[in-house]
Design a protein around this nucleic acid. Structure first.
Lengths: 162, 162
DNA sequence: TTAAATGCAAATTTTTTGCGTGATG
DNA sequence: CATCACGCAAAAAATTTGCATTTAA
């Protein structure tokens, strides 16, 4: 079972989904539990496996669909990887720092308390051999705030219509 | 033409490639120039367009191949996006913070001087409406340092063998 | 019985790979 | 003539989408 804290999180997630008008179906209930039970920031694939253990017929599309609902309701943090599966954090859905091992692909939370300065050397406190870091902010630039359609992406500007 | 500073960068990149034993072919020379000339952290596609203007037959694979060489020689910073094209910074190839506009998809450098704390509110200093941030460290965890093969990714652990 | 949930398969997109040709030293 | 550069097309891998069916309020 999930501990007390995670049970509370489960309740929050279900409430957020319900408020948005989506049903908590058995598959979705199970998906939430799988997501919360894992401490490894699971991928869609791992979540799929976990749900399939109870509901063998479950399709991958259903997992993607439900994750999408969770994203829309800010109930999951998506950690994106290019060329690899995204990873998901349902326990702490707000932006927070991670440690990513490039060998075993584990994704750990980095306790915020440990981090005073993003350029601080965290090798000694974490034991990780740090190879690179990513500190990026996502939002809406001043141009696009005033004139949302004027500065649409150019033909081949990068991100596609995901 | 490229300014003085970028000319110097171009020289560095060519030297790094040459030292690794790769030829600076006309296409590669042009690719480096396109990469440096753009202040928008171009995607492979944009670079491809830029190179094709001079060498129309150039294939996408060649761009990917050369970018790979640049990565191996630490001459380009790859900014990864899941589900979208990666973006590349040849001007400053070391990890540094960015501002990503989710509307027009521009990627700007955030002057390090502006950033004392990754959780600082940078909305006012940048004019961006910040929606989320990503502060992640990539490296090798303690387990994998001692025992590189013992903690290989599980069957479906996440990242594939990119 | 209407709308939501779901499975399935096809489609999309980005990136990688294999292979053959051609240039170069 | 051996190696590297490179075009081309197919392959991989993750994600999204369209459509038909089932489920359920």
């Amino acid at each position: 079972m999930l501990g007390e804290v995670l049970q509370a999180r489960l309740g929050e997630m279900k409430a957020a989904l319900a408020e948005r008008g989506v049903a908590i179906t058995p598959r979705r209930q199970r998906l939430l539990e799988v997501l919360l039970a894992s401490d490894r920031h699971p991928s869609v694939s791992e979540i799929h496996e976990g749900v399939k253990r109870y509901y063998p017929g479950t399709s991958l599309a259903t997992i993607y669909n439900t994750i999408e609902l969770l994203k829309e309701t800010d109930q999951v943090l998506e950690i994106e990887f290019s060329g690899a599966s995204n990873r998901y954090d349902g326990r702490i859905p707000k932006s927070h720092p991670h440690l990513v091992c490039e060998v075993c692909e584990k994704v750990e939370d980095l306790d915020i308390g440990e981090l005073k300065d993003p350029f601080e050397d965290i090798s000694s406190s974490t034991g990780y051999r740090i190879l690179r870091r990513r500190v990026d902010y996502y939002g809406v630039c001043p141009d696009c705030q005033g004139n949302p359609l004027a500065s649409a992406p150019s033909e081949n500007g990068g991100k596609s219509g995901k």
